[in-house]
Write a protein that binds this DNA or RNA. Structure first.
Lengths: 358, 358
DNA sequence: CTGAAAGCGCTTACAG
DNA sequence: CTGAAAGCGCTTACAG
């Protein structure tokens, strides 16, 4: 039963039966238990034995049935990733990073974008996954009970983003404060004083941190942080547009800093519609550095967060937690940097600014 | 054992044992078999019985172990989706559509972006999924043997895109020819004659169809399709830039039509770098209508394909195939439309043009 | 309409 | 270092 280039067709012709561990056992002359052991790299098996068995596995093109091994105590080798949606670049980059890293380590991702309690429960009770990656995005996405539940059941997990929980959980976050502070300092060099800040939705801690960091940077530059105007958006392009419409026509501003790029885009669109020149009449900046930021007119000055890398780090740390058991210290904060383009009023070459230490 | 708002905590306290079908059987006074039947909506069960059992299921918060049911002949309720990557908007939109639709129907997606034969085999032999969604993207992503293999094993699948296979497989495609033809006709109204067409990679049938449709439209407008210049790209922004550099400095063109938006973007960037005005000196158009297309300067005229909907239709049709067995006629072609913005030389309001019938 | 029993394909103590 | 056996939690003929 040799193997040619076309391993598939051969099997089709046999067609007879699914190849099971028992067949491997029989052909190799060892027991099912021993075959299982070599498949799971049990070091107690004599190397020569392992050799022989592996050879048969190879010849037969045997692949263990993952459902069976999961049921009998093995692992599923799959990770659940819970995301609010896939429509924003932030989430897809995250997913791409997580997926690539998971595959590199032999894991598969199970994607869920409807994070109801029921979905969650089915994943856990159904024994479908070994661990969870949870992107926190507001109260609706999941609550602390869910995390406690996972913890009690000893199911490894990691959360992405800044949840408003008092308790600490394994998490990967970004330096929102440092990034926004950089922006404030840059506003300082431009001398902007009359500033509009557009927040994300009320529950977003990421947004809160950005505002906080921005205020810190402002006072460092001698601007009274309490004098800026703060308006609430919801991270959507539309909300940026709406806030702009509501505020820009009333008061006179030097600059607006939106808590993400989408809202900054909304602001810029409003300006275009009303003939407000950016950045001559008004500077506009964002947060994220999504793909379109660099292609806007004018190109958007923004804070870059490493979206893809967040996904990578999340699975890497989750894997560590899975290996070493629950009590691995696993909170990481990834750096952000200021990407200076033209919407802030600069007009030279694009440049990047990082925090000295964060 | 009533259920309060916090179903999770309660279970934590019991902590004792996982709730299995046997526990449900015992508490309800029926056999395991009967419980299984009601869970699987077997119509032979007496309604009153089903009622009682369901009540117990509810009270206990019982969730079947999916690995166990999969192993014993049930379904996994999961669909594998194989994508070349997640970096391009095309794929993520596709994924978003597929994911939403799958969840609506009680399915979960298993995502794979490394489509090696090994990965494929593990999914099939490992019994991890009920069916496959395959995005065809060139020879490396998968070959016809794989499809035959699935077919022989009676594993439902659907392919997305236009594969170069002679044999027919369930598939969802888009009207590449019709879309490109629309573009050609629009070029006709602008009177463009000296035209550069940038293709995708050699193996891309989507690209070939776009070129084909474009030529048809051209001749309909009295332009000799053999006089246009055709250059090969690979769908990347960089390749668009490179082709532009190679060609635009040599010959004089009225317009370039790139087989996707990314390459069009590359061309526009090159023009910016060299001070070539778009569309005054050169019209540039693309294909896809990705998010950034409308935000480019000038906004990109392009052909819109319904990326999200492709994902939706793919799982819907796959579900039909799964229900009705293999021989469901299931090939669909989704329409495309011309989105006129400004990069083609128009300067009015944006507008859309569809094929009368496709 | 319902139940007892076999079986899905593995893993893992328990012996030796 | 290896094997026989029990068991994971379900589904599905087979009887009745």
């Amino acid at each position: 039963m040799s193997h040619n280039e076309n391993g598939f067709k051969m099997r089709q012709n046999e067609k007879t039966s699914k190849i099971t561990i028992d067949i491997v056992a029989q052909k190799s002359g060892f027991s099912r238990a021993t075959v299982s052991r070599v498949l799971n790299r049990d070091p107690s098996v004599k190397p020569a034995t392992a050799q022989k068995i592996l050879r048969v596995v190879e010849d037969l093109g045997y692949t263990p049935h993952s459902m069976a091994s999961a049921l009998s105590g093995g692992k599923t080798k799959t990770l659940a990733i819970l995301l609010p949606d896939l429509l924003h670049e932030y989430y897809t980059q995250l997913l791409a990073g997580a997926d690539t890293t998971a595959e590199e380590h032999g894991y598969t991702l199970l994607l869920k974008t409807r994070n109801t309690r029921k979905v969650f429960q089915e994943l856990v009770e159904g024994g479908r996954v070994d661990a969870f990656i949870l992107r926190y995005a507001g109260p609706a996405s999941f609550d602390e009970d869910l995390l406690k539940y996972l913890r009690n059941r000893r199911i490894p997990y990691i959360v992405i983003g800044t949840p408003p929980f008092l308790d600490t959980h394994p998490a990967v976050m970004i330096d929102n404060i440092g990034g926004a502070r950089l922006m404030a300092q840059h506003y300082g060099v431009h001398g902007y004083k009359r500033i509009l800040f557009i927040t994300g939705p009320d529950h977003s801690n990421d947004s809160k941190d950005r505002l906080y960091g921005f205020k810190i940077g402002l006072s460092e530059k001698g601007v009274d942080p309490e004098r800026i105007v703060v308006e609430e958006g919801d991270f959507s392009q539309r909300s940026g547009y709406e806030v702009a419409k509501r505020c820009l026509l009333q008061d006179q501003f030097d600059a607006v800093f939106a808590a993400n790029d989408s809202m900054a885009l909304g602001v810029i669109q409003f300006c275009q519609d009303r003939g407000i020149r950016v950045p001559e009449d008004l500077a506009v900046t964002g947060f994220d550095d999504t793909f379109f930021a660099g292609h806007l007119q004018p190109p958007l000055t923004t804070i870059r967060q490493p979206m893809y890398e967040i996904g990578v780090v999340a699975v890497l740390n989750l894997l560590r937690v899975m290996e070493k058991g629950e009590q691995v210290e696993s909170r990481v904060i990834l750096p952000t940097k200021l990407i200076v383009r033209r919407s802030c009023g600069c007009n030279g070459e694009p440049m990047e600014l990082s925090n000295p230490t964060t």
